[in-house]
């Protein structure tokens, strides 16, 4: 029990008649980096949304560090230590880097309820430190997000997750829209997390990236897990076979 970071039991989500997620049993251990793969609509993002409290599950249990959790919203998940980089970037375009990094948990100079005064200097310095730590390169942190390239935006979103010491990091296709160099940068951040022993769930379509970065690959198909593979014991072709439905692991046979 002790080394399990996240466990889901029979996690199920129905959108009306659509069974987006069906009886998912998933385990993530300490320091482990796991990739979730699967075709479009296989339920990867739905799975993440249930864990992070963005949506409420239809059925099932989520245990975080051994304790059952029921996050009413993403904030509760975040307070519990789950940091997420969403597929649709959760950034405010008109605000600058520091504002976005600290959105929803601003440093304050004077507490006056909603009219608390912001500590801009503190946030700026913490931002610089965080960006250095993650190795993210942004020409000018005073630029608003709308003036940045897709890669820079992604880096800001990831820097946000990496800034706050998290007990679990989830990234939903972090490099989908990035160029070669930017992808390399993001992958470096992920390697940093691995060195620091921080657990990670990575959703990705990029086979090379997955084999480069993670320890274990979990394949989703039509809302169910159809394979759970150690990286060393598999290869790209086999993973593709699982994704497309050509193969299913015997223990997940009911998924097919």
């Amino acid at each position: 029990m002790s080394d399990i970071v996240l466990e889901t039991r029979d996690l199920t989500k129905h959108y009306g008649g659509v069974h987006a997620l069906e009886g998912v049993n998933f385990i993530l251990r300490k320091g482990e980096h796991v990739a979730i793969m699967g075709d479009n609509g296989a339920g990867k993002s739905t799975f993440v949304r249930q864990i992070t409290g963005v949506e409420q599950r239809t059925r099932g249990e989520i245990l975080f560090y051994g304790r059952p959790v029921n996050f009413a919203g993403p904030l509760e998940a975040r307070e519990a230590g789950i940091e997420t980089v969403f597929q649709t970037l959760a950034l405010a375009d008109h605000l600058d880097v520091a504002d976005n990094l600290f959105l929803g948990r601003e440093k304050l100079r004077l507490r006056l309820g909603p009219f608390s005064i912001l500590d801009y200097k503190g946030m700026r310095e913490a931002t610089l430190k965080a960006l250095q730590k993650t190795g993210v390169k942004i020409p000018n942190i005073h630029n608003t997000i709308e003036r940045m390239s897709g890669g820079q935006r992604q880096c800001v979103a990831i820097a946000r997750t990496a800034t706050f010491h998290s007990r679990l990091t989830i990234m939903d296709e972090p490099t989908a829209a990035l160029g070669v160099q930017e992808t390399a940068q993001v992958e470096n951040i992920i390697r940093n997390l691995k060195e620091q022993g921080e657990p990670l769930i990575l959703i990705s379509h990029n086979m090379r990236q997955v084999f480069d970065l993670v320890d274990r690959i979990v394949v989703f198909r039509r809302g169910r897990i159809c394979a759970n593979l150690r990286k060393e014991e598999t290869d790209g072709q086999e993973v593709v076979a699982y994704i497309t439905g050509a193969k299913t692991q015997p223990e997940y046979a009911d998924a097919a």
Binding site: R78, A90, L103
Partner: peptide, 18 residues
Amino acid sequence: KHTYAIGSNEDAARMSGI
């Protein structure tokens, strides 16, 4: 700050816990 954030990207504001 939250007023700008909501106008800029309401979903992001909500996901950030505002």
